[in-house]
Design a protein around this nucleic acid. Structure first.
Length: 421
RNA sequence: GGAGGCGUCGCCUAGUCCGGUCUAUGGCGCCCGCCUGCUAAGCGGGUUUGGGGCUACAACCCCAUCGAGGGUUCAAAUCCCUCCGCCUCCGCCA
């Protein structure tokens, strides 16, 4: 949620931010009106309530006739206070809803516009040239006995898969490699719950427009997370952190579940777009001032991981309209997928500044009151897409796959993945 | 799943039976000051969080906050209901 003071002091800035994301600025006026109504409701309620309290004290000491008279007055007042309290609550709710519906204003550097308006920041490595017809990851996965899509569909439906044999080993290797890198960089490793309460989902901004993509457990007040950003953001909710402890860096492993609503027909084959995958995610809490530099660090760690896998990729600056509710700026690393002839998102890092921490009440003690911290997240490895990129990029003519050197220690020194049949 | 116990402003704790003097007690820790060769001790003061008013975003005043949400009442930490969490025992289980 945005800073209410910013909305009051500089509403034009929020209006401009809305337009930059391709959204209507009307919500600003709705919020401002709600704020005014709320404050006047609070003032009315509180003055009557104060009166009620002071009368209550007199009642306690009064005797006889005086007491009877006081009771008559305070009884009427009581009903009024109750009404005013309800009115105040309603005004508060309206204000809260308006405020919460406003996304984090994009950074000045973020390109304006929607999904296609990203800016390419850099290319790393060059897409490999093949002197044979490259196979897609589906065929390679089948030849290697690594990916079983048919049985995934049989058991769980479309967009599900089993990783088997070397496929399963690959996942564990990638997870360990990611966790090692993170630990060496000072991250605390975490295995996070993938079922969370509404508060966590709402606090991270996934129950707004993004709610269609979220699985809810029937009959329970629980959601399946789409990323461990959700449990990790909520991890320190309602806490006041010691400023000296920042930054707090976590690398969290969890499964991720996504309905993929509205993507029917897209990436229907293979494991590019699935309802479930595992992921190692970096999550950082720091000060807003430090968050911009930290964002660059997260990007650097993502690039380091992709470099070790010897992948060709580009980094894009995601446009304002494609940032999601919480992010102020987002960089995606997109790896070259040979059989698709294009770059596909493998990792993504967002600076959510104090947007999530305001909703989740995560702050540090400051000299002039407590201030919300900044939260940032970045993918180290989303297993399925990483496997796609590795298989397709490092395949050889016979269907075997060369293992990038950095990954070998995590596969018992294995240099080549060989077809099983 | 069953039975019982518990949840108070960083930590511990008094208060809850019997509603008003609770503006929530005391200790520890922490902060400021005093005292003091130094340290320790001692003395005095302060120390939840969120919101509103007024403002310099200070000071000050007010409202809410005793796990959460409802209810009863002129008045709720205290009485009633629902929920959540923790502990102990039993059952079941990876």
């Amino acid at each position: 949620m945005i800073d209410a003071r910013l909305l009051r002091d500089d509403p034009d800035r929020i209006r401009a931010a809305q337009v930059k994301r391709g959204l209507s600025p009307d919500v600003v006026d709705r919020a401002l009106a709600a704020d005014e109504a709320r404050r006047s409701a609070i003032a009315t309620y509180e003055s009557r309530r104060a009166e009620q309290k002071s009368l209550g004290k007199q009642v306690a000491q009064a005797q006889g006739e005086e007491k009877t008279a006081l009771l008559a007055r305070t009884k009427a007042l009581s009903a009024e206070v109750k009404e005013l309290e309800a009115a105040q609550g309603a005004a508060e709710t309206e204000w809260d809803e308006a405020l919460r519906s406003i996304p984090n204003p994009a950074a000045d550097e973020s390109p304006a516009g929607g999904e296609d308006d990203f800016v390419v920041l850099e290319h790393v490595g060059t897409p490999r040239e093949f002197d044979f017809e490259p196979r897609d990851h589906i065929e390679l996965g089948r030849m290697l006995g690594a990916i079983d899509l048919e049985r995934g569909a049989k058991v769980s439906g479309s967009r599900f898969y089993f990783l088997t044999g070397i496929g399963a080993q690959l996942e564990l290797a990638l997870v360990n490699m990611a966790m090692d890198q993170a630990r060496n960089a000072g991250f605390t490793q975490v295995i996070a719950p993938s079922l969370v309460k509404p508060r966590a989902m709402e606090g991270t901004g996934f129950l707004g427009q993004a709610a269609d993509d979220v699985y809810r457990i029937e009959g329970e007040d629980l959601y399946l997370v789409g990323t461990s950003e959700v449990p990790m953001a909520a991890y320190h909710s309602d806490e006041i952190l010691d400023a000296g402890a920042l930054p707090l860096r976590y690398s969290a492993f969890s499964p991720c579940f996504r309905k993929e609503a509205g993507s029917h027909g897209k990436d229907t084959k293979g494991i590019i777009r699935v309802h479930w995958f595992d992921k190692v995610e970096m999550f950082v809490l720091t000060t807003v001032e430090e968050s911009y530099a930290e964002h660059q660090r997260l990007l650097a760690w993502e690039k380091e991981f992709l470099d070790k896998l010897e992948l060709a990729y580009r980094v894009i600056d995601v446009a304002a309209g494609d940032l999601g509710l919480s992010a102020q700026r987002k960089f995606d690393c997109e790896a070259w997928i040979p059989t698709q002839g294009k770059y596909r998102e493998l990792t993504s890092t967002s600076n959510c500044t104090d947007f999530q921490s305001r909703r989740l009440d995560i702050r540090t003690r400051g000299e002039s009151g407590n201030t919300p911290v900044a939260t940032l997240n970045g993918t180290l490895t989303a297993i399925t897409r990483t496997i796609v990129a590795i298989l397709e990029t490092h395949q050889q003519a016979d269907g075997s796959v060369r293992v990038p050197e950095a990954l070998r220690p995590y596969l018992g020194g294995l240099e080549v993945l060989k077809p099983v049949s």
